[in-house]
Amino acid sequence: MSAIATPLAREPVLSLRGVNKRFGAVQALTDVHIDVAAGEVVALVGDNGAGKSTLVKVIAGVYQPDSGDIRFSGINVTVGGPGEAQALGIATVFQDLALCDNLDVVANLFLGREDLAGGLLNEVKMEKEAWRLLRTLSAKIPSVRIPIAALSGGQRQTVAIARSLVGDPKVVMLDEPTAALGVAQTAEVLNMIERLREHGLGVILISHNMADVQAVADRIVVLRLGRNAAEFRVEEATTDQLVAAITGASDNVVAARAERRRTDGAEAQLEEGNSDG
């Protein structure tokens, strides 16, 4: 059933081949491959325990793979730690955002990468740069001089995404960016992801939300039990196919539930029609 997508038109900016990772007796990743090209959004989906987080952490340099190749811009690299990943140009927005509530937006954006002038913080330059970053995302933040605690969930997500852009990365990984957001805020974050793509960045989007994935991704990579289960181009994939690939069967709980609702709905409609007549 896996429709292996057509080979990429462009050279991938980030490419993983045959990645294995085990924790004690658990084989978390088995021979996993994934490619991301510049200006492409790749969604990484899978059930809990499918290995998404492990794969993200391997790419982010948090874990070292037991075996496998990581190629970045066509060169074989080893990602020894989060710092090295950032230096290469791989930025990660973690699910818990990792922002300091007591610091303002500028301070958070440049935390650990402050701009200095004569030993002191160059606040003016950083504030200027902050506005530029936020504008490339068309982000709506009323002021960059208010503490993060005063921002809404969507605005915090915006700040976290903007922060990932500070070092001019080539690849941005977003871990569940819409998990805690409302409808309008989710739409804003999806817009932002599209803007990252327009700016020629490779984006890896981890999400549980099929609607979001289908709305914004170019390709969808499905992991199941630590292996590549399927890969779709987004226009080829239906929700049913995705769910089937994620769960590993077509007669699964989700499909059965959908089926039952469809028949229930039909009966209800039938009854309504009867009472009308």
């Binding site: 300091c100 509530d101 935390l111 990468r113």
Partner: peptide, 20 residues
Amino acid sequence: RWGRHVFAVGGNEEAARRSG
């Protein structure tokens, strides 16, 4: 930078660590 980092560690140590 040192002062900024003091506030950052006091606000959210884990976030500060991940920011380098």
